[in-house]
Simulated assay, not measured.
Amino acid sequence: MAKCAFLGLGVMGYPMAGHMAAAGHEVTVYNRTAAKAEKWVAEHGGKMAPTPREAAEGAEFVMACVGNDDDLRAVCLGASGAFSGMTESAIFVDHTTVSSMVTQELYAVAKKNGVGFVDAPVSGGQAGAENGQLVVMCGGDAPDYAMAEPVIDAYAKLCKRIGDSGAGQKCKMVNQICIAGLVQGLSEGLAFAEKAGIDGRAVVEVIGGGAAGSWQMVNRYETMLDDKFEHGFAVDWMRKDLAICLATAEETGAALPVTALVDQFYKDVQAMGGGRWDTSSLIKRLKSFG
């Protein structure tokens, strides 16, 4: 069992850190709002620290799951950042979905300090985090990944190294690109069924086991039909991720016409007051705008 730190106790990080503690790891947590860290310690044991640096001191592995590029820099860098408290040979594992640019920037700083750095964004949403069933896509040096994988396994159903530093983030971009188009297609199909006067539930029962089937269809069609959008990844966060995808596409020359269009549809959902609705709320936009 390892001595670990976990930075960021949001809807994902809170249960992920809990699985680490349940697996027998010694876990010290840090959260910007200390009350959340106090609650976690009361539930799971372990310790809390007032700064990322103090959480990271003596840790073999430091995990982070925060909000965006700037949040990640804030917990890594500076006098109170985790890097300043980590010992040589310790490994930093970043589960935040961020740009590959900041990943490579922090990888370089970590290596200069003798610290390993693995970018390891996750897929599976809040339910996946709570159930310890996340998919973790990783980039970084192979030896660092090999050491970190057994710790990550505490909350993962699948963990795989895709390539060098930044490859995990690029894989997560592919994930979000695929989801964006798929959810829009599902929304259009269900809205069409309603307009055409047929039972959407009966339709999914028939087509869900065929070529049209998907995780989104199985897990979201009922809440979509019931106009309930509090069951997954928020629109605000999806737009943050799609902005990263679109910026990277511009840098690389990749074409993302459908992704760009769906991003604008999510902008409409935000304007409807749905920034915290889950991503399946695209169907609500269709019903409002046609």
Rank of each mutant, 00 (worst) to 15 (best):
A35G: 09
A23M: 08
A17N: 09
P15A: 02
G10Q: 10
T33F: 02
A17L: 08
A42F: 01
L7F: 06
M20A: 09
Y14M: 01
G13H: 11
V27Y: 07
T51C: 05
A56F: 07
A56I: 04
A49P: 12
K47Q: 14
L7V: 05
G45A: 02
A21Y: 06
E54H: 00
G58H: 01
G45D: 06
V27D: 10
P15H: 11
A37F: 13
A37H: 13
G10E: 09
K36M: 06
E26C: 00
C4F: 01
P50K: 02
G46V: 01
T33S: 15
H44D: 00
H44N: 15
A23G: 15
V11I: 14
A5V: 07
P52K: 04
F6M: 09
V27I: 14
M48A: 13
A42N: 10
W40F: 15
A35D: 15
A37Q: 11
G46P: 13
E57T: 14
M12G: 08
R53E: 03
W40T: 07
A49G: 03
M12W: 08
A22D: 15
A5E: 05
A5W: 10
G24E: 04
T28V: 14
A34T: 14
A56V: 01
A49E: 07
G58E: 05
L9C: 04
G24T: 07
L7Q: 10
G10D: 09
A22K: 15
A5H: 10
E38H: 03
G18N: 09
E43I: 00
T33H: 13
Y14P: 06
F6R: 08
V27G: 06
R32V: 05
E43W: 01
M16Y: 08
Y14L: 12
A35L: 04
A55D: 05
A56T: 03
M16A: 04
M16K: 13
A23W: 04
K47L: 02
M12H: 10
G24A: 08
C4H: 02
A42P: 02
A17V: 01
H19Y: 09
A42T: 09
R32F: 02
H44P: 07
L7R: 11
A23P: 10
G8R: 04
G45Y: 10
A5D: 07
A35Q: 15
E57S: 12
C4W: 03
W40L: 07
A5N: 03
C4N: 01
E43A: 14
Y14H: 14
T28D: 04
P52S: 02
T28H: 12
V41G: 05
G58P: 11
G58D: 03
K47N: 12
K36T: 15
